[in-house]
């Protein structure tokens, strides 16, 4: 099993790891991956992946506007909002 690039994974997941917690997580992940690595031993040639328990087509909704404006209720949930906008630290494009 290759060594896990934990920094890259944590960055993709946007989870900050302190040096202490990184060591613990690394050990945990190694254990979990050792468990899931048992899958590698199985020959699955020709088996179609099953991404869902339901073998049904997607249901479609009609193209109708059903949602009323709920801005005030929704913005009230936000940590920071102003002038009808959610606010986040400056995004530099």
């Amino acid at each position: 099993m290759p060594a896990i690039d934990l920094d890259r994974i944590a960055e993709l997941a946007r989870i900050e790891l302190t040096p202490d917690s990184a060591a613990a997580f690394r050990a945990d992940l190694q254990r979990v991956l050792a468990l899931v690595d048992r899958l590698q031993a199985v020959d699955t040639t020709g088996v179609a992946p099953m991404s869902h328990p339901l073998d049904l087509p997607q249901r479609l909704r009609e193209d109708v506007v059903t949602e009323a404006d709920q801005r005030d209720a929704l913005l009230a949930l936000a940590p920071t909002a102003e002038n009808g906008l959610y606010l986040v630290p400056q995004v530099i494009e």
């Binding site: 899931v36 899958l39 590698q40 199985v42 699955t44 088996v47 179609a48 992946p49 099953m50 991404s51 328990p53």
Partner: peptide, 10 residues
């Protein structure tokens, strides 16, 4: 691979 196993298990 896990999804393929999922089919085999089902």
């Amino acid at each position: 691979q896990a999804q393929k196993l999922r089919r085999l298990i089902a």
